[in-house]
Design a protein around this nucleic acid. Structure first.
Lengths: 142, 142
DNA sequence: CTAGGAGCTAGAGCGCTGTCTAGGTCAAGC
DNA sequence: GCTTGACCTAGACAGCGCTCTAGCTCCTAG
């Protein structure tokens, strides 16, 4: 907070492109409308960076910008709507748990296939034709 | 395989829309070009459904259609490229593991926030102004 | 004989999330 | 004075993954 950060610095620190940073601001995803220098350049605070980091977590767990904006609005409105914030967070939490379950199941299937191919290749090193050409679909219908 | 399935039946069983099924076929995502009845209608086999189920697993773990098509092509080519198939599967497997890690970290953060709000609300049931309006940003810079 | 319903193709359109361009300002360094 | 580089705005464009429409063919039931 001592001096404030330029958009370029924030881009480096968050990993978001400067384009994305301006885009997020237009989309109302930033807590405040972002302070400006006299010349119109954006000045970000450490708090802004923290907020962005949280938004990145939201995004990368599949929360749409729309929902992030709704959450941002709730926070902007100030105290009194904690119930709503909590509801939003909880619902996203559930969605993340569901995603984790689905991903885990996908991983199970993929790992099964990886194991099968690994085994096949270990066995038939020299000639890969361990299986008759006509049985390819069965091979793949694992 | 006794009689074969119509696109509508496959849609029901896989959860993909008929639009999506035709789209996937155009995109070369199906093992074979899908048999047709004399009148041009698609006839799917159980194997096709199995293949689609696997594609759904791929998709829902973030594999782009492009990559699914590459994998499909490898299988279409028949035996001899198992190394490549395995490489593709392994790389996707890694990506899924990475996603799981990221999601887990997101969940950690979100759960932390959920817990904080829950605690706050349990404490200050009556008046929600347990925190001064000016400290909202700190509140949110968790 | 007619209406519905399922299917077909080709291709347009859409929602989301950015990314990039054009055209400009400003400040610092050579 | 001139270049360079970071920044600005408004708005066009892009990629992905479908989704939908138009206009058609069939088949079946009433």
């Amino acid at each position: 907070m001592a001096e404030g950060l330029s958009i370029g610095q924030v881009s480096e620190r968050t990993g978001l492109s400067v384009h994305a940073l301006r885009f997020y601001e237009r989309e109302g995803i930033l807590a405040d409308p972002v302070r400006r220098e006299s010349n119109g350049r954006r000045v970000y605070s450490e708090d802004d960076v923290d907020w962005l980091d949280m938004c990145i977590k939201f995004r990368s767990s599949g929360m749409p910008l729309d929902t992030i904006r709704r959450y941002t609005d709730l926070v902007k409105q100030g105290p009194g709507n904690e119930q709503e914030r909590l509801a939003l967070l909880k619902s996203h939490q559930e969605s993340v748990v569901a995603q984790l379950e689905e991903l885990t199941e996908c991983l199970r299937v993929i790992t099964y296939k990886v194991d099968i191919y690994t085994e096949h290749l270990e066995r038939g090193t020299a000639e890969c034709l361990w299986v008759a050409p006509s049985t390819v679909s069965q091979d793949e219908a694992v």
